[in-house]
């Protein structure tokens, strides 16, 4: 009974993935293994590091702290969905230009968190921005360049919006 399989559909970056999983399979594992989207990384599997951050109905959540069955039919966005073809999102570009990544392992989580911030509160103040970014761990950069990248992306988006 405990290994009963559930047929669900994960809608990731607009594409439906009909999958069959045990109830205990985390959303993060299902995205990675069943949907084959390995950009979402696992850094702790206990909800502290934020590497597995994805957007669930446009809200950032930790994919290791949900079961896949709970996300059945919900709109999920992952790092693979940020770029449009060859065109990187302003935040992806800013991460490269501001050297906001080194090993790149935490990067997808920060990109998804940053994307949500830019969508919901592009004029966010520094203090609140730092507070929100403190939810994710990075072991390489010391964070300053990540902050800088989010600000640079916000500025670029403002400019684009004006133009």
């Amino acid at each position: 009974m405990t290994h009963e399989l559930h047929d669900i559909t994960l809608v990731v970056n607009g594409r439906s993935h009909p999958i069959r999983v045990e109830a205990r399979r985390t959303l993060a594992d299902a995205i990675r293994e069943e949907c084959g989207l390995t950009g979402t990384h696992l850094g702790c599997e206990h909800g502290v590091c934020g590497a597995c951050t994805v957007l669930l109905d446009d809200q950032p959540v930790r994919a290791c702290l949900m079961f896949a069955v709970q996300a059945d039919g919900r709109a999920i966005r992952t790092v693979e969905g940020l770029a449009h073809g060859d065109t990187l999102s302003p935040l992806q570009k800013a991460f490269i230009e501001q050297h906001a990544l080194q090993c790149g392992y935490c990067t997808p989580g920060f990109l998804m968190l940053g994307t949500a911030i830019l969508e919901q509160n592009p004029d966010i103040g520094d203090e609140e921005l730092i507070e929100i970014l403190s939810s994710n761990l990075c072991r390489c950069t010391g964070y300053a360049n990540i902050l800088r990248a989010v600000r640079a992306a916000a500025a670029a988006m403002r400019e684009e919006g004006v133009a």
């Binding site: 950009g39 979402t40 992952t78 693979e80 940020l82 991460f95 490269i96 990544l101 790149g104 990067t107």
Partner: peptide, 8 residues
């Protein structure tokens, strides 16, 4: 960086 920011 390019593959890393794309989740690739």
């Amino acid at each position: 960086d390019p593959p890393l920011v794309r989740g690739r």
